[in-house]
Design a protein around this nucleic acid. Structure first.
Ligand SMILES: [Mn+2]
Ligand SMILES: [Mn+2]
Ligand SMILES: [Zn+2]
Ligand SMILES: [Zn+2]
Lengths: 143, 143
DNA sequence: AACTTAATTGGAATGATTCCAAAAATCAAT
DNA sequence: ATTGATTTTTGGAATCATTCCAATTAAGTT
């Protein structure tokens, strides 16, 4: 598992802009997220990261995730009271939480719908972030 | 601070249906929520509840809130990683979290918009709950 | 009242996340 | 390349909202 050249450039770019250093651990955590885009928790990222970087610590995974989120490369996804999950999908999207499998699915949201949602706010209220999530049952997979 | 007759009936009704007993503490916690509908945390509910029922425990407040939520009389509102808040507004509504004051405001959401949101889901996906929340700055209050 | 079952209580336990201070790594300037 | 200044990483301790527990109390029933 390796970081694609374009992703690597995006990372360097974003880190530089935030005056943060590029490190082996940050690259690796980012690569882990891009490799399997299934909204892992910090613990899951830690487990995956360790398979190829056995010395990375959980604290560092938390630090890297926090850095990636603050750089805008990764979204932190909070579902109910569960541990945070992390998502490298930068398009505007909502999340569907499947109660049976526990999986989280990305749902694209067209811009005009976002605009419609913003119109619900009373005059003067400015939303800098909108979070939309669904909870329910996904169709049984025809495995 | 007293529970209105209609609220009291709704409570008895909902508890009975769930085969739960009506208790002084449950009535009181419900009354606290209805009295000031500002999305308090469990700690805040505890503080308010104690002013007129000094012997109630924090564990009981958590228990009562959980009961009220499971009866459908109260909504548990989770914002980012903050402590849960509790809301007795049963209409379909979203929440606006004001970054300056920390306050949470109810935003009504028309049914047709909800329908539009549900249409975003791929075929076969059934949402039994939709959560919509805004984070941003409310207009400075003209106090 | 006596009995059965559920709810309340204070305190301990849990668990995701954050904090800390020492060691290691990065970057800039020689 | 070496030095020095600044970040980052690291393991472990601390935090804190929430849950769990076992004993006491209250509710509802006969
Ligand atoms: Mn889940
Ligand atoms: Mn807040
Ligand atoms: Zn996502
Ligand atoms: Zn509300």
């Amino acid at each position: 598992m390796k970081l694609a050249t374009t992703a690597k450039r995006a990372l360097g770019e974003a880190l530089g802009q935030a005056k943060q250093r590029s490190t082996r651990q940050r690259e690796h955590v980012f690569a882990v997220l891009l490799d399997k885009r299934d909204h892992p928790t910090a613990d899951e990222v830690y487990a995956r990261a360790r398979t190829t970087m056995p010395t990375i610590s959980l604290a560092t995974v938390y630090n890297c995730l926090e850095t990636l989120v603050s750089c805008g490369l990764v979204r932190q996804v909070n579902i109910e009271r569960e541990p945070s999950r992390y998502c490298p999908n930068l398009r505007e999207h909502a999340h569907f939480h499947d109660l049976r499998s526990g999986r989280v699915l990305d749902i694209d949201v067209p811009t005009d719908l976002i605009t419609g949602l913003k119109r619900l706010l009373p005059a003067g209220y400015e939303a800098e972030h909108i979070e939309l999530s669904f909870r329910g049952k996904a169709p049984t997979s025809k495995a």
